[in-house]
């Protein structure tokens, strides 16, 4: 057991910022390769004529999920040392709906807006400025919605832990779901191609 390297003290805080920059380069590179610097490409997901968002996202999720699963089974990676965002059921439903609305109205999400600015998109820049404005607005709003913000907190948990299912079974189910989704995505794209 030696990973995560940072958690096992293989390097310090300053080196971690260099790692952050390098990992960010990889992240931005593949987002742009996929076409996600383009708002029209991204929102096509919601008009069903180009489901690249779903395909890229679920391929990435399955790839990384299988990677952590095998590395953890081989005893290389200590999964308990990998940070999990705590679950707040209702805020995460509402937050998801609001971000989804922002996505289809604004054309980007926070990460893709950074890539879009890098490729010269003015609307991406306005989206990023909107992120700053929205953050200020939320800072003002938070004291008034503190009860809602921290409701239905169930701590850090995963689907296999919460529903008491074997980890490998959930991994297998996600892989099957993704493969079914990829097959379905092809059918949907062909059905909606004419209306594009």
């Amino acid at each position: 057991m030696m990973a995560p390297f940072f958690k096992f003290g293989l390097f310090g805080d300053e080196a971690s910022l260099v790692v952050a920059f390098v990992i960010g380069i990889g992240f931005g590179f593949f987002l742009e390769r996929a076409g996600f610097a383009s708002a029209r490409k991204l929102v096509s997901q919601f008009y069903l004529n180009d489901l690249a968002v779903f395909k890229v996202m679920f391929t990435a999720i399955v790839t990384a999920m299988l990677g952590v699963t095998y590395l953890s089974w081989m005893g290389v990676l200590d999964l308990s040392q990998v940070y999990l965002v705590p679950t707040f059921v209702v805020p995460q439903i509402v937050g998801g709906l609001v971000l989804g609305a922002g996505f289809v109205i604004g054309g980007y999400c926070p990460g893709t807006s950074a890539v879009s600015i890098a490729t010269g998109k003015l609307d991406g820049l306005l989206f990023a400025l909107g992120l700053l404005g929205g953050t200020l607005a939320f800072a003002e709003l938070l004291p008034h919605i503190q009860g809602f913000f921290s409701m239905t907190s169930i701590g850090t948990t995963t689907i296999p832990v919460y529903f008491n299912l074997p980890y490998g079974l959930v991994v297998f189910a996600v892989v099957l779901m993704a493969l079914g989704g990829f097959y379905g995505a092809g059918l949907i794209e062909r059905a909606f191609a004419k209306r594009a």
Partner: peptide
């Protein structure tokens, strides 16, 4: 849309990257 996304991400403790992609791969509920 950017402003809405910031509010949504703040309420949810993360966005499409930090929540959906990262937590998706970790099977985070």
């Amino acid at each position: 849309g950017g402003a809405l996304s910031a509010v949504g991400a703040a309420i949810a403790r993360g966005c499409t990257s930090g929540q959906a992609l990262t937590g998706g791969a970790l099977l985070n509920l």
